[in-house]
């Protein structure tokens, strides 16, 4: 016997994975898949308390969702009597279906497809992979629920009508498309981290959600730059309690109490940085990894006065060489000023 609360925990953990596989079975029909996953969870709520929880809850949910998907598609085909117009149903054996690597990776790449507008990529990623409701996403981005709902409807409709593939991109495009997925995750993080308006609770949730998605990217792609992104987010987020004072005003990095930083999170991030800085799949460390290395040096300083500025200046120099921007140039100059004085920075 399992309590409703325990079953709900299973849903939260497994929802994205079950949904990702169901979308594949429905040939990329996001709406139908969402509906079916909801039904599969409803079935679990009625059956698990009496029949007992299956040994493998995920496999059970995926197989129930798959059968419902196939039934629905067959019914539709019969209804229309145009068998040829409907794509063939995935008839893979259920065991095989559950054993496939991980459909969440397809889901990430489809949600973060460059043919979708950036704000739609973000909304769709939070909705499908994050399991956030439309209202929650609207609240986090300070937009009307109706606007957000329409954005999601349009994005899902474009995936279906323009046939955006539900696939992991081929090797030649993988790095570029992973960059696009990382950009979405970092956008979610920054929305939670940088903005001052809106519901504070939801903003912190967005940071945690971005970190969760970052972990997923690392787990599924193993891309060193994804490790850099995860480390960067963990390091920024480790200072969440030190960033504001009791009155809610911003505290600058040099005035922060280093003791209130989240040490466990910093340790996790520091362990990721060496890998991130030595990517085998790219010509050199990417922008997230270099920024993570800089944040790591800040996080490793026991006090503000003991920050390793020469090293930080060198990393900003590298960042400037590979990914130049006015903000990086300014930060580079500041790091040199902290190290060798303002006169050197102006040169």
């Amino acid at each position: 016997m399992q309590s409703v609360a325990a079953i709900e925990t299973v849903f939260r953990q497994e929802r994205a994975r079950v949904l990702a596989t169901t979308i594949r079975v429905t040939n990329g029909d996001f709406d139908l898949a969402e509906e079916i996953v909801q039904e599969a969870f409803a079935a679990a709520l009625t059956r698990w308390p009496t029949e007992g929880t299956p040994a493998e809850p995920r496999a059970w949910l995926i197989s129930v969702a798959r059968n419902k998907a196939i039934d629905t598609i067959r019914r539709r085909v019969k209804l229309r009597a145009i068998v040829a117009a409907e794509d063939p149903v995935d008839t893979a054996d259920p065991a095989e279906l559950v054993a496939v690597p991980d459909d969440r990776l397809r889901l990430i790449f489809t949600c973060c497809h460059p043919a979708l507008a950036p704000e739609a990529q973000v909304a769709l990623t939070l909705r499908t992979l994050g399991g956030l409701t439309t209202e929650e996403i609207a609240r986090a981005f300070l937009s009307a629920p109706a606007t957000m709902a329409q954005r999601l409807v349009r994005a899902k409709s474009k995936i279906k009508e323009a046939r955006i593939p539900y696939e992991v991109p081929e090797a030649s495009q993988l790095a570029e498309r992973t960059d696009a997925a990382m950009a979405v995750v970092y956008l979610v993080f920054n929305e939670g981290y940088a903005a001052t308006a809106g519901d504070a609770w939801f903003r912190r949730d967005l940071c945690s959600e971005a970190i969760r998605l970052g972990r997923l990217l690392v787990e599924l792609t193993g891309d060193p730059e994804a490790k850099g992104l995860l480390a960067l987010m963990l390091l920024h987020d480790s200072r969440r309690d030190a960033r504001t004072d009791a009155a809610g005003d911003l505290v600058l990095l040099e005035d922060q109490d280093h003791a209130s930083w989240d040490r466990a999170q910093i340790e996790e991030a520091l362990a990721l940085v060496p890998d991130a800085l030595r990517p085998a799949n790219r010509p050199g460390p990417g922008p997230y990894s270099l920024q993570a290395a800089i944040a790591a040096l800040h996080a490793s300083a026991p006090r503000a006065g003991e920050t390793d500025w020469p090293q930080i200046a060198a990393l900003f120099g590298e960042l400037m060489r590979r990914h130049p921007s006015p903000v990086i140039a300014l930060n580079h100059a500041v790091a040199i000023a902290m190290w060798r004085g303002p006169a050197a920075a102006c040169r």
């Binding site: 497809h113 043919a115 323009a162 046939r163 955006i164 593939p165 696939e167 991109p169």
Partner: peptide
């Protein structure tokens, strides 16, 4: 084309 990626 088989999908949008091939078309683009």
């Amino acid at each position: 084309a088989k999908d949008l990626d091939e078309a683009t």
